[in-house]
Amino acid sequence: MDFDLIFRVYPYFLQAALVTIQLAVYSTALGLICGALGAAARLSRSKALRFVGAAYVSVFRGTPALIQLFILYFGGPQIGIQLDAFEAGVIGLGVNIGAYMTETMRGAIISVDAGQNEASRTLGMSRWQTMNKVILPQAFRLMIRPLGVNINAQIKGTALVAAISVVELTYTAQRYIGSTYKPFEMFFLAGIIYMAIIYVTGLGISWLDRRAAIR
């Protein structure tokens, strides 16, 4: 392994890692919003909204994220959507992970014991009050870990935007592989950084999970 090379190029990788982190943070935030809306739609009493929610999940989980990204970035201008690669990356990745988060959030909500709903309704609380004060506070605790799995996947998923030339970690690694012919070193360097990001995120998720644990 060529450590000299690694020491020479690592600052560029760290810069690229910042872009990866930004992509992950923004797209995760967007994903959480899409997931919350999607879950609300899927659990709504309106048939039309339930259909919209189910269609969102089915289409975005049923096709490759890469294709979704290409439609948005390359096809967007044809329908009047002009985005730079970074913006397209955030929106494409965010809406995609939102479909997965929809299912995570919905799963957490419906796994809250049915007796909780019965008890609240028996006290005279409305559906909305029950959801707001009884079901959701419990569901939040149940969804932290599975959302953590989604976020973990999303961090690795940010690599896709290399295909639309966003200069993030994987794109940078690819470029240096091309110019140095040292694929193992470059993989090693980028890999370590990805794992560090995932590790720190994991610590954060565990911390949240512990804090939210039901006493």
């Binding site: 019965e118 008890a119 609240s120 028996t122």
Partner: peptide, 16 residues
């Protein structure tokens, strides 16, 4: 329902 109290077999207390 505000006028009808109910107690369940499995309590259904709010754990949070």
């Amino acid at each position: 329902r505000q006028e009808i109290g109910m107690v369940f077999q499995h309590f259904n207390l709010f754990p949070h």
